[in-house]
Amino acid sequence: MNRRRFPWLSYLLVVTGAVVTVVPFLDMVMTSFKGPGEAGTLPYRFLPRALDLSNYRAAVDQLDLPLLFRNSVVATALITGSVLLTSSLAGYALAKLRFPGRDFVFRLVLSTMMFPPFLFFVPHFLILVHWPLAGGNDLLGRGGAGLTVSIVALAMPFLVNGFGIFLTRQFMIAIPDEVLEAARIDGAGEFAVWWRIVVPQTKPVVVTLALLTFVDAWNEYIWALLVSTADPDVMTLPVGIQLLQDHVDPARTMPVVMAGLVLSVLPVLTLFLLLQKHYIRGVMLSGLK
């Protein structure tokens, strides 16, 4: 198109859109510094009068931040670790091993991506409630709260990811068979071949998948809300902050909520800005599935 002329109109559009995208984040930060009676009053002011840090102190006081952070970190770590491990193991079998039923298993993995998450909220919750021999349940899953009162409940429905297996498999197919065959002839078992040769070669896809999984797990809300209703001790950051906003008068607590949100959003935004190339490549790959 007209590449020689300076594209004024395009700049105007893109910058306006970018402002609309970024301003809510700035408003969140600005509000988190606003003093009592300064937020939510007319007329609206974008900038706070002073850098009032008391909201952050209040957020730390009113929210059990160490507990919330711990739960979010544990759940995210469990999910990310498990997804990486199971995707790599299953991806290797599907990409590089020959065995009867391989096509069927691959198609099963693909089909898991077809079912929307909302189909599973109810049965997953009930399955965890009636998990045999856990949380006071008998062998038939009766009598207790099952796994819902355990921190692993936060992670359980997300421990394996069909898309993760698919992504890893596609990446592993490119590894030449000769390299693996040579290692096998040298007496390496399949586990050693996977761990010593395949895993190191799949670092890029591991980083990408780790980022995608981390961000999703850290931001997950609905399932964490369900599980924390059963047991407040496993509450995660998003749930804790939402609860704070549900229970206190909005006019006074908005700045405190915003301060809590800034604290909870910072780890992910930092990670994204540092590693965005890998993350964006992951989104692109998922766009090509």
Binding site: P24, T41, N219, V239, L269
Partner: peptide, 23 residues
């Protein structure tokens, strides 16, 4: 940026922005 932000942040910030004294 909004895609890597938790829905709790997105929802609350906008809810506040939609209020009479909001942005």
């Amino acid at each position: 940026l909004p895609i890597v932000t938790t829905v709790v942040a997105v929802g609350n910030v906008w809810k506040y922005m939609y209020e009479p004294g909001g942005l």
